[in-house]
Design a protein around this nucleic acid. Structure first.
Lengths: 212, 212
DNA sequence: GTCTATAGGAGGATAGAC
DNA sequence: GTCTATCCTCCTATAGAC
């Protein structure tokens, strides 16, 4: 099956379909390996081998290891879609916490993705790490997203006015990250979804509206 | 200042005092560098240089990089002393949580030690990592220690009987680990001690005795 | 777009002198 | 106990053929 000539995109237009396929394979493998051994613990040769092309072939698509990392992170964000948004709108108030539970449930089905994030976050605490900016922006983004949700909930009367917003957000993010680590170390035995769900339920009781 | 001859330990008895000094310097530096860049991101040559001896000189004391890592982890446990014990007795009930707050306060004064633990834990999720067993045992130990404390508190009437012990322990450990990561990523700006203290205070309200 | 070949460097570990 | 010298492996990246 092939397109009629006039529908074909020219080479100068953009990469070929075969090239796209190779690119996609490389990104999938890179995500897995970076997840399994971190950025520094993974060689581009390993990625290339598992993706079924030579090291040089890989470097044709991603000119350096850093470029591959950045592309892999962007790819992750892309396939993540916008799980934390609904119809391009972020959920507000307690709905944001329900969205987080859904995220944890989804994460519990893809340990390698979780491992990529945990491994890379730790590695990239070092300011000299190529993903340092990415990690800082990631945390800043999550913090801003969750803070906005809580503050909106406050305005809407979904939260008691005494809720210490900043500490509350810090602890919620900590619960997410900390449970992920224990879940990974335990080899998936820990009930991450149940534990985080219990956390959210407790918070609803403590910080929900007085009459709730 | 030197010991009279008869008090000197012979060479065959054990390593010389100079050797001990070099060994100690190497361990201190190794802790710092492993903390800053992780195990895989640190070379023994770097450790040797900062410790003031050659790479081969280092390998005379620690025959391989893995041996150095294990020695450094043991050294960390040693200088940690037994902060979580008082008079060789672990605190029980809510006293265990107060001991954790003290631990967090102490950790907030030594970012490199925290970084070593966070970086290494993430790296060592990989079963092929030389510190994999160490990390698993670390988490198992903390879990057992905290579970025992809560169960003892239950018997003593310090906790409501409805407390979900396992989830409670998971979430407490998660709060510790998760706050450490955010604290490191923020460059120390996050109020880790205050956040964890607020967490413990909230738990005392929620799971403390009914009349408390 | 993919390959082989190779440059250029860093890391871990060993041999042997002092 | 510490050193210099060296080996070998692995890694990133480049050059150039097909």
């Amino acid at each position: 099956m092939s397109f009629p000539r006039r529908y074909r995109r020219t080479v100068t237009d953009r990469a070929s379909a075969a090239g796209d396929q190779a690119r996609a394979r490389v990104l999938e493998v890179a995500l897995d390996l970076f997840a399994a051994a971190g950025y520094r613990g993974t060689s581009i040769a390993q990625v290339a081998e598992l993706a079924g092309l030579s090291q040089s072939g890989l470097l044709h698509h991603f000119p350096s290891k850093v470029a591959l990392l950045v592309a892999a992170l962007d790819h992750r964000d892309e396939i993540d879609g916008r799980l934390l948004e609904v119809d391009s709108q972020p959920p507000l108030g307690w709905a944001a916490f329900d969205a987080l539970i859904a995220l944890v449930r989804r994460n519990s089905q893809r340990p390698n993705q979780v491992r990529l994030f945990v491994t890379l976050s730790a590695e990239a605490i070092d300011p000299a790490h190529p993903a340092h900016d990415w990690v800082q922006q990631h945390y800043a983004g999550v913090y801003a997203w969750l803070t906005a949700a809580v503050e909106h909930g406050l305005d809407a009367g979904e939260f008691r006015s005494e809720v210490p917003v900043e500490r509350f957000v810090h602890l919620t993010i900590a619960a997410l990250d900390g449970l992920q680590i224990q879940w990974l170390v335990s080899g998936g035995e820990l009930d991450m979804v149940g534990d985080f769900g219990a956390y959210v339920a407790a918070q609803k009781t403590r910080w929900g509206p007085v009459g709730g």
